[in-house]
């Protein structure tokens, strides 16, 4: 499903300085697998996620998803790929604060120019599934952290993606809400989605439905 082959990512901070975030990584994730990436801050977890999402391009090496080479897609196509295949739950949720929950959830569909009916149906179903429909007309900036989290997950699922990526999903949640998130995760896993989570929250370690935990250290995988 997802395959990283000899991937190196170097960030060029400026002309002289550069940061080697990942070096020669090889990683294979099968369809329906749930993988946890763990490791200290700055080890390169987020970088791996953004490479899988085609949000950034590797300096060398290849990223394949469904045998399709996404590491070298032109900008428009990498967006289309994300739109059709990826649901991304960001660390800071990345919702637009001055739009309502429903508007935020519908954002990925805006460029598709669908008819009003199917837009409505799709948003209703994800909002129900992630228990946020009672807040659908509230501006996001007036939501609590947990509600924002659920809105973000709903948005990541509106296009019914095959792959779900989550970056530090529980960093801003208390323990109760974190456990709630883990329950949602279990449900997603049951619907046979491929899931990759970057976290250093110990709550995730040793869960029964997690297939693999991978340690990232200084830009390399510890196997």
């Amino acid at each position: 499903m997802i395959e990283l082959i000899d991937v190196t990512k170097i960030y060029e901070v400026n002309k002289k300085e550069s940061v080697r975030a990942l070096s020669h990584i090889n990683l294979k994730i099968k369809e329906g697998e749930l993988v946890i990436l763990k490791g200290s801050s700055g080890s390169g977890k987020s970088t791996i996620l953004s490479l899988i999402a085609a949000l950034s391009k590797p300096t060398s090496g290849e990223v394949l998803v469904d045998t399709k080479k996404i590491s070298k897609l032109p900008d428009n196509f990498s967006s289309e790929y994300r739109r059709d295949n990826i649901g991304f739950v960001f660390q800071k949720y990345n919702l637009i604060p001055n739009l309502s929950v429903k508007e935020n959830i519908l954002l990925p569909l805006v460029p598709l120019n669908l008819d009003a009916q199917s837009m409505h149906q799709m948003s209703e179903s994800v909002m129900q599934r992630f228990h946020i429909e009672h807040k659908q007309d509230v501006l996001v900036r007036n939501l609590s952290g947990g509600e924002q989290q659920r809105a973000a997950i709903a948005r990541a699922n509106i296009n019914n993606p095959k792959i779900i990526l989550a970056d530090e999903p529980t960093a801003n949640l208390d323990e109760k809400l974190s456990l709630h998130f883990i329950e949602m995760l279990r449900e997603l896993k049951a619907s046979n989605k491929t899931i990759v989570i970057a976290t250093h929250d110990p709550l995730f370690f040793g869960l029964d439905f997690v297939d693999r935990e991978i340690q990232v250290h200084n830009g390399s995988l510890v196997l």
Binding site: A53, D75, S79, R82, R83, F88, F90, N94, P111
Partner: peptide
């Protein structure tokens, strides 16, 4: 800027 970044991250193309 962040807003545009979000839009692109959730699948808006440059053309959009």
């Amino acid at each position: 800027k962040r807003e545009i970044g979000i839009l692109k991250a959730i699948g808006w193309r440059v053309d959009d």
